[in-house]
Design a binder for these strands. Structure first.
Lengths: 236, 236
DNA sequence: TGGATAGTAATGTATAGACATAATTTGAGG
DNA sequence: CCTCAAATTATGTCTATACATTACTATCCA
């Protein structure tokens, strides 16, 4: 129960806002009033309110005061865990089968390849992720060798390239596209499905600064995988 | 360009961590050393490091020091815009057709219904979202009338219930599940597809505090819709 | 009436110091 | 050599104060 005072102030108002007792637009007491309420110095109050500001729960305007923020409607946090960990957490055995490995120059006619690697060489890795020997996802990956030359010497047979990259290559930006598609012939063959079966397509590009690192396209068996995104404090 | 000093310290080290110049486990200078580096007081240094701690970029241990945090949690920001706005932004005409409206008690055998509304009544709304008169998504929605009694008097024929709720009912928590499924008979009929066609399933629950507000299940035509999630500064 | 100007109330940033807390290192005694 | 206690070091919390910044308010003068 040794809760710091600034944390108590913060959680007091966090609770009131999250419970709806303080509705969006409602005004909070000024720092001076809170100093009196909690019998503490202004810096302590300020630390609590700064934390709420950073969390996006309140808006503060000089001279005007402190107000409950409108919830940011359409941004949620999407957790994209590492596949190997994910499978292990479900208590299943993970395996990655490398089907193709190839170094080539980008096709100047394919925008996504030149966008990733400029004029530099590409490492192409195709494979399938398994959970308990059942195919879970098929993966086509491009890695820019000029951005990550050390990948050329790595043996990816067996280890997922995603996990290797995550551990060895820090990145600063990423973009993920999520869609539902029918499996084409190649994907269906890799996943042991009928062509046209619904698959969750996850396409991710990552950058470090301005340099493209990798572009990966994963097709998940629709019936075996889903994603969860959340907003606000954890629920269940 | 009037950047506060604590913010400059924070962004200096944020940049070094994100760029990989400081690898996970690396030790940062102590607060005393940073005071000298930046010629400022300890509180200023502390504010910068507290922000990095809150952002999960560093770990701090008493006596031991400050270290770059271990694994970068792979979480991204998912934008789930309002469908009506989304369609309008593409320059298309939006329409929502209400197919069913019904008030009933939750089925005690269906966990998701009692979880949403407890023992209170449910408003059931089924409909289809159109873009330029082409079906885009089919929607099955449950609303807890005890949490939002005012919905009972609203005429949802024509206006999307999602947009109405967003505007009138503040919520504090939400969870979204994303999956790829084949269209069942009912969904296929509403979307004018063949049964089994790949659809992006988006299932969202929202709460205010501990009270469930709404549970919505949307099936998007796979070929016509996708989601984008990003991490880091905007790219393209 | 209207418009510049001074006042004022709120947040934003920063300082210098104090004591609390936790973990590691060191030292004393067995 | 081992163990327990004390010193050390770095972070954690808090105070009291100061001045900066911003935007709203009121006032004065044309």
């Amino acid at each position: 129960m040794k809760q710091p005072l600034h944390d108590r102030i913060r959680s007091d108002y966090e609770a009131r806002i999250l419970s709806g007792a303080l509705l969006p637009g409602a005004r909070l007491p000024t720092e001076l009033e809170l100093m009196r309420d909690y019998a503490c110095s202004r810096m302590t109050v300020n630390k609590a309110l700064s934390a709420l500001t950073a969390a996006g729960l309140i808006d503060r305007r000089k001279r005007a005061g402190t107000f409950v923020a409108r919830p940011r409607v359409h941004s949620m946090v999407l957790d994209v865990p590492d596949l190997e960990q994910e499978v292990a957490q479900r208590g299943q055995r993970y395996r990655y089968d490398l089907l193709r490995r190839e170094v080539r120059m980008p096709d100047p006619g394919t925008a996504e390849e030149t966008l990733l690697a400029g004029a530099g060489p590409l490492l192409v890795l195709d494979g399938v992720h398994h959970a308990d020997d059942v195919p879970l996802a098929s993966e086509q990956r491009l890695i820019s060798l000029s951005a990550v030359p050390e990948t050329e010497g790595v043996d990816f047979a067996g280890a997922s390239p995603g996990a290797w990259l995550l551990k060895h290559v820090p990145w600063t930006q990423a973009e993920t596209r999520i869609a539902a598609v029918g499996a084409d012939r190649a994907v269906a063959a890799g996943l042991n499905l009928l062509p046209g079966s619904p698959c969750l397509l996850i396409e991710r590009r990552t950058w470090r600064g301005d340099d493209g690192i990798t572009l990966v396209r994963q097709h998940f068996v629709g019936s075996a995988y889903d994603l969860i995104a959340t907003f606000g404090p954890a629920k269940g």
